[in-house]
C-alpha cells in the first residue's frame, strides 16, 4: 500500500514540475520571427489552411509569466492597455476578444499590430518574449493554469491577482 501512495505522490508532483522551470538562456532561433502564425481571415483562396493551435509553455511557467508582466511595463503595453483595464487600447482583463483569445491569436496581434493604434512588435522584440507577454495577457483573464499565475504584483495592488482571477471566456 505504502509504495502505491508514494508513487502516486511522486506522479502528482510531476504535474507541477513545469511551474518552476526557468529558461535563462534562449537560443537565437527562439528570438526570431517577423510574421504571424495563423490566418486571420476565414475566407481563403483554394483549399482552406489547416487550423493551427499552439500550446504556449510559458503559460505553465511562473517565471515566464512574471517576465511577461515585467515586459508588459518595459515595452509600454500599459501605456495604452493600463493594468489590463484598458484606456486608449481595449481592456485585456475582460471576456471580450476582438481578435481571438487563443495564444496564437494574441501572439499574432503583438507581432503584426492591429488597426487604430496597436503597433507591430515583430522583429522588434524576441519571439520568446512575445510568448511570455502573451501568457501574461491571458493570465489577466484567468486563462492560464492557476498553479503558475502570479499571486501578487510587485507594485501597488490595483486589481485582484492573476491567480485569483476567475476564468473569462
Amino acid at each position: 500500500m505504502t509504495p502505491l501512495i508514494l508513487t502516486l505522490c511522486l506522479l502528482a508532483s510531476l504535474a507541477s514540475c513545469r511551474r518552476e522551470q526557468r529558461q535563462l538562456r534562449h537560443s537565437p532561433q527562439a528570438s526570431t520571427r517577423t510574421g504571424g502564425i495563423v490566418r486571420d481571415a476565414e475566407l481563403q483562396p483554394g483549399q482552406p489552411w489547416p487550423e493551427v493551435t499552439v500550446r504556449n509553455v510559458s503559460e505553465e511557467r511562473a517565471w515566464d509569466l512574471n517576465e511577461g508582466q515585467r515586459l508588459y511595463r518595459a515595452y509600454n503595453c500599459n501605456g495604452c492597455h493600463a493594468n489590463g483595464g484598458g484606456g486608449m487600447g481595449p481592456a485585456l482583463m475582460d471576456e471580450s476578444w476582438i481578435y481571438g483569445s487563443h495564444p496564437e491569436n494574441i501572439h499574432d496581434v503583438i507581432v503584426e499590430g492591429r488597426p487604430n493604434g496597436m503597433p507591430s512588435f515583430g522583429g522588434k522584440i524576441p519571439d520568446y518574449q512575445i510568448w511570455e507577454i502573451t501568457a501574461y495577457v491571458r493570465s489577466m483573464s484567468g486563462l492560464v493554469p492557476k498553479l503558475a499565475a502570479t499571486g501578487r504584483t510587485d507594485h501597488m495592488q490595483t486589481k485582484i491577482s492573476e491567480q485569483s482571477k476567475k476564468e473569462e471566456k
Binding site: L24, R25, H26, S27, P28, Q29, A30, S31, T32, I125, P126, Y128, Q129
Partner: peptide, 17 residues
Amino acid sequence: IADAGGVKPGVLMPPNP
C-alpha cells in the same frame, strides 16, 4: 550583442541574431 547570456546567464538582454 549576439548573446549576452553567454557572458552573464540570466541577463535581461536577449540574444540578437
